[in-house]
């Protein structure tokens, strides 16, 4: 089953196209890893897939309510406990059960600690545990392993594998090898050309 279908997509940052002519699709059970140098536009692409910004050109089709997005910032409230943070996001997505998420990311022993007391890696794990309570099939992840130690990276990789095995999918921008059976998608060749006129009407600004 195709969960995300991207056709001839151009994404822009600050009104300037950064990647163009992207076409790919992601089916359930698939992991797509985006690679490319810093500033290539991976974050912009992921934000477009998550629906935070409109495509500059081309189309992104996603199954309804399919995408769960996680970025550099974890969206945690430092004065709420780990449990409260997770309960909030579970509630937003219409669920109550946060047990599995706590277990998968080894947060059980931390559940009553305020999120502000956690180390950077623990915060990251909590941010990723949020994905489990969204119950959405496609995880769109931007550099998820930043500030995770080796053990935590393994936890994360295991969680992604379990998610994908149960019919989900993941699109991940990362530089490290996570040991998946992944499809690698290098965005470098799609760098938008600057010397072509795309839109004859408002050409003057680009």
């Amino acid at each position: 089953m195709k969960l995300i279908y991207v056709k001839n997509l151009t994404v822009a940052r600050g009104g300037m196209p950064v990647l163009e002519g992207l076409s790919f699709d992601v089916s359930s059970g698939e992991i797509l890893v985006l690679r490319g140098p810093n500033g290539a536009g991976k974050t912009t692409l992921l934000r477009t897939l998550a629906g935070l910004q409109p495509p500059y050109a081309g189309t992104v089709e996603t199954a309804p309510d399919a995408v769960a997005y996680a970025a550099h910032a974890d969206g945690l409230k430092t004065t709420l406990t780990v449990r409260e943070n997770l309960m909030f996001w579970a509630g937003v997505y219409g669920g109550r059960d946060i047990g599995p998420a706590l277990r998968d990311f080894n947060l059980d022993s931390l559940s009553e600690r305020p999120a502000g007391n956690l180390s950077a890696g623990q915060k990251r794990r909590l941010g990723l545990a949020r994905l489990r309570v969204t119950h959405r099939p496609v995880w769109v992840l931007d550099e998820p392993t930043v500030s995770l130690d080796v053990a935590s990276v393994d936890l994360f990789a295991a969680a992604v594998k379990a998610h994908v095995a149960s019919g989900g999918a993941a699109i991940i921008a990362t530089h490290i090898q996570l040991g998946f059976e992944e499809t690698v998608f290098d965005v470098t060749p799609y760098k938008a050309r600057m010397d072509v006129v795309r839109d004859d009407f408002d050409e003057a600004f680009l």
Partner: peptide, 8 residues
């Protein structure tokens, strides 16, 4: 236009 050139 200048801004766009600069960005480019």
């Amino acid at each position: 236009r200048l801004h766009a050139l600069d960005m480019r």
